[in-house]
């Protein structure tokens, strides 16, 4: 009866000037579990909350290394993220082969941006149903980029995407000024604290459901050339110390008052 006639494909505008397929794709990003990224002057970190389909199953990976110097965090359709991550891996490898250097992160993100935008403009294609946070370091220092299914990409100081990510973003906005001068560990702790803000009640960060990814860069004392700390994903016992370090303070924080509606996003 009230069937939407304008959401059959991504090339039809609604009379209001909207393209529903692209908006639905943006919704798919909000179905994914939350991921947070922060960049300082020396490091770019990603932290992610992993879900398991059922008690007995393993947890779905959220962080992926692309190249020595770049990693991504995904929220949305994992299978679409796989396509993008394979593409990014190939581009980075190709760049390394032809120029002998780390691919500049902005160039890489621009490429997936263009790739994703094309899908929103061709009949028979569909937008990617995944959002990414791309963290990496290059000659110009650490970077964090947001990528959306519409093809929009934006450089960020700190950002969060995925289910209930608004709470994490609020935390990040509150602490925005601190990030630039944060050390490696401090930056991870900020990320985990932001992540905690977005958890549903009674849910805790554990070593099973938490991933941390870090890339860093520093100037060598000898000749001033940049020394890269390669992007690495930390899981399981490796994240234990970080989780414990944010567990003590702010006990019972994250005032539950504002989350009246039961948003059953986390299975």
């Amino acid at each position: 009866m009230f069937r939407n006639n304008y959401d059959n494909d991504s090339v039809t505008f609604s009379p209001q000037g909207r393209i529903f397929q692209v908006e639905y794709a943006a919704e798919a990003v909000k179905q994914g579990s939350v991921v947070v990224g922060i960049a300082s002057k020396t490091h770019a970190v990603l932290v992610a909350f992993k879900r398991n389909a059922e008690e007995l199953s393993s947890y779905q990976k959220k962080l992926f290394a692309i190249d020595e110097h770049v990693g991504i965090a995904i929220a949305g359709l994992t299978s679409d993220a796989r396509v993008l991550s394979n593409f990014m891996k190939q581009q980075c490898l190709g760049h390394r082969l032809t120029y002998g250097r780390n691919m500049p992160v902005r160039g890489l993100v621009d490429m997936i941006g263009s790739k994703a935008q094309i899908n929103t403009q061709h009949y028979g294609k569909r937008p990617y149903g995944v959002g990414l946070l791309v963290a990496g370091v290059d000659e110009q220092g650490p970077h964090l980029f947001e990528f959306q299914p519409s093809g929009m990409t934006e450089e960020m100081v700190a950002f969060a995407i995925g289910a209930r990510s608004q709470m994490a973003r609020t935390y990040l906005e509150k602490n925005l000024d601190a990030f630039a001068d944060c050390g490696r560990e401090e930056l991870v702790r900020h990320g985990l604290k932001a992540l905690k803000e977005s958890l549903v009640q009674d849910r805790e960060l554990t070593i099973e459901n938490t991933s941390v990814g870090i890339a860093g860069v520093s100037k060598s004392k000898e000749d001033g050339s940049s020394v890269v700390e390669p992007f690495k994903v930390f899981d399981g016992q490796e994240v234990n110390a970080w989780i414990e370090s944010v567990a003590d303070d702010k006990e019972g924080g994250g005032d539950a008052a504002g989350e009246g509606e039961g948003m059953d996003v986390d299975a």
Binding site: T98, Y99, G100, R101, Q140
Partner: peptide, 17 residues
């Protein structure tokens, strides 16, 4: 030449390819 643009080593590698 801002930090990060192609240096001589990068350019040489490119020309070689």
């Amino acid at each position: 030449n801002p930090a990060g643009s192609l240096n001589a080593a990068n350019l040489h590698k490119y020309l070689q390819k």
